[in-house]
């Protein structure tokens, strides 16, 4: 039971980090990406390769993950500079589909469908440490960073771009750099979450980085509420405990639990958007005009 709970807590911290970084992109910068799992995947593969080939040092793995994911986030930043709204969602959706193909085919780097197996336990200075404390530290670190940025000049620049891009540009804000930085920061966070995910499971394959995963992270954000600090965490905890809660219901056949779970969160997304578009913790008045 303790092992089960600590596993759930680790996953909640990892997915909380994913949802919170996606929130930074969506809520702060107004860049509506449905390709967050791509950067989680890049980070997971980078972190796993570092642990497999170099040393199972979690700090090094996270650093490599952040650099790879943040660097390749340019793929997402480029279309974000050109188009907004529906167009960008379509572009990020395409990127997600493309990335899954690449992850499956680049077998030397990712192991394809078979994935990377036997990732060693993370250890620091020769001591094996569990992933849970590291995930919690990473989560708190990113949350503090993000709330600092939100209040600082960078966050306000992003807010200005989100609300009126031309006006922000007219006031001398460098829109391209601000957007690219926001995307890179968010992707780096997702990369760190991916590396921790790989170290935690000691196995990764492409199945964890599909469109479904991106949508799950988005659903966590939506359920919790975009633009809030704690909303994404609440969403992550709620949606991760859903499968566990469902398995206690005797009348659902075990083979259909996956489907029922997806139906519940798909339905929750639709119903929330119709009746409470700013999420559970969101400011309802604000959500109406911009979300």
């Amino acid at each position: 039971m303790i092992a089960y709970l600590s596993n759930l807590a680790t996953l909640a911290a990892i997915f909380g980090l994913l949802a919170a970084t996606l929130n930074f992109m969506v809520g702060q910068a107004g860049i509506f990406s449905v390709a967050h799992a791509v950067f989680m995947g890049l980070g997971a593969y980078a972190g796993a390769q570092v642990a497999l080939l170099v040393v199972p040092n979690p700090l090094l793995a996270c650093l490599a993950a952040a650099v790879v994911a943040g660097g390749l986030s340019l793929c997402l930043a480029l279309p974000a500079l050109r188009v907004r709204g529906e167009y960008f969602v379509a572009a990020s959706l395409g990127l997600q589909m493309m990335a899954v193909t690449l992850f499956t085919e680049a077998k030397p780097l990712t192991g394809g469908m078979g994935g990377l197996v036997g990732i060693p336990r993370p250890s620091l200075f020769g001591v094996v440490i569990p992933v849970l404390p590291m995930a919690l530290i990473a989560l708190v670190l990113f949350l503090v960073l993000m709330s600092a940025m939100q209040r600082g000049s960078f966050g306000r620049t992003l807010g200005a771009i989100r609300d009126a891009e031309s006006a922000a540009e007219a006031l001398g804000k460098n829109v391209a750099v601000a957007k690219a930085l926001a995307v890179a920061f968010s992707a780096a966070g997702a990369g760190v979450a991916g590396a921790l995910f790989a170290l935690h499971l000691s196995f990764v394959n492409v199945e964890s980085f599909t469109l479904e995963q991106s949508v799950l992270v988005m659903a966590m954000l939506i359920v919790g509420g975009t633009g809030t600090l704690l909303g994404p965490l609440l969403g992550a905890v709620l949606l991760l405990s859903l499968p566990a809660a469902l398995s206690f219901l005797p009348f659902i056949p075990p083979t259909e639990i996956g489907s029922v779970q997806q139906i519940i969160y798909g339905g929750a997304m639709a119903l929330l958007m119709i009746f409470r578009p700013a999420g559970l913790l969101g400011d309802q008045k604000r959500g109406r005009s911009e979300a």
Binding site: I263, Y265, G266, M269, A270, M273, S289, A291
Partner: peptide, 17 residues
């Protein structure tokens, strides 16, 4: 007066269902 993202998420949710 929900924005495009509200519409997108709702429609996506229905697609999943």
């Amino acid at each position: 007066e929900g924005g495009f993202f509200t519409v997108f998420v709702a429609a996506f949710g229905v697609s999943i269902v």
